[in-house]
C-alpha cells in the first residue's frame, strides 16, 4: 500500500466507512506511526468542524407532508392552466364566429386598400361634373378654366384623327 492509499484509508476510517478487522489493523498502524496519527487527528478535527458549522435546516412539516404540499401546488397550477386554455361554451361560440369574421374583415380591408385608385391629378372637378372611365389603363387629366366656361379632359389615348377623318370622307 503506498502512502496515498494509506491516507485514503485513514480518511475512510474517520468517515466511519471502514469497519471490522480492516479498521482495527489500520488503527494499530496509526498508533505506531506518528505521521498517520497526525493525519488522523487533523481529519478528525476537520470532520468535527464541518459537522458543527453546518446549520440544521429543519422542515416546517414532516418530510412526506412537505413534499405532498409541493405536489399539490403543482397540480393546482396545472388545473388552473387547463381552465384558462379550455374556452367556455360562450367563448367557444364567440371564437367560432368572431375568428372567421375578423379574418374576412381583414381580407376585405386589405383588398379595399389594395384597389387601384384613380390617379390623383390634384384637380377637382366642379360639383356637377362626373367622369367615368371605362378602362383603368387610360390615364386622364382634367382642367377647368377659371371662369368654368371650359372643361377639358385629356386622355392618354392616341388617335390618328387625320387619317380617320380622311377615311370617313372616302367611305
Amino acid at each position: 500500500m503506498n502512502e496515498n492509499e494509506i491516507q485514503l484509508k485513514v480518511q475512510a476510517l474517520v468517515d466511519g466507512v471502514l469497519t471490522g478487522r480492516e479498521a482495527e489493523e489500520l488503527q494499530q498502524r496509526i498508533n505506531n506511526d506518528a505521521t498517520l496519527q497526525q493525519l488522523h487527528e487533523r481529519l478528525t478535527q476537520m470532520r468535527g468542524l464541518i459537522a458543527n458549522s453546518e446549520l440544521p435546516r429543519p422542515l416546517p412539516e414532516s418530510g412526506d407532508f412537505y413534499w405532498n404540499k409541493i405536489a399539490e401546488s403543482i397540480e393546482r397550477e396545472e388545473r388552473a392552466g387547463e381552465r384558462i386554455a379550455k374556452p367556455t361554451p360562450a367563448n367557444r361560440w364567440l371564437l367560432r364566429w368572431l375568428a372567421p369574421l375578423a379574418g374576412v374583415s381583414t381580407v376585405v380591408l386589405l383588398l379595399t386598400l389594395q384597389q387601384p385608385t384613380a390617379p390623383d391629378l390634384g384637380i377637382t372637378l366642379s360639383s356637377d361634373h362626373e367622369l367615368e372611365l371605362s378602362s383603368d389603363e387610360i390615364d386622364v387629366m382634367t382642367y377647368n378654366s377659371d371662369d368654368d366656361s371650359m372643361s377639358i379632359v385629356w386622355l392618354d389615348y392616341s388617335m390618328d384623327i387625320q387619317k380617320d377623318y380622311m377615311e370617313l370622307w372616302l367611305d
Binding site: S126, D128, H129, E130, L131, E132, L133, S134, S135, I138, V140, D148, S149, M150, S151, I152, V153, W154, L155, D156, Y157, S158, M159
Partner: peptide, 18 residues
C-alpha cells in the same frame, strides 16, 4: 373610353382631348 356628365351652358365648352 369614358363618359363625362356635366351641365353645359350657352357659351361654355366641354372638351375631350388626347
Amino acid at each position: 373610353l369614358l363618359q363625362k356628365t356635366q351641365t353645359l351652358r350657352e357659351g361654355h365648352y366641354m372638351v375631350l382631348a388626347g
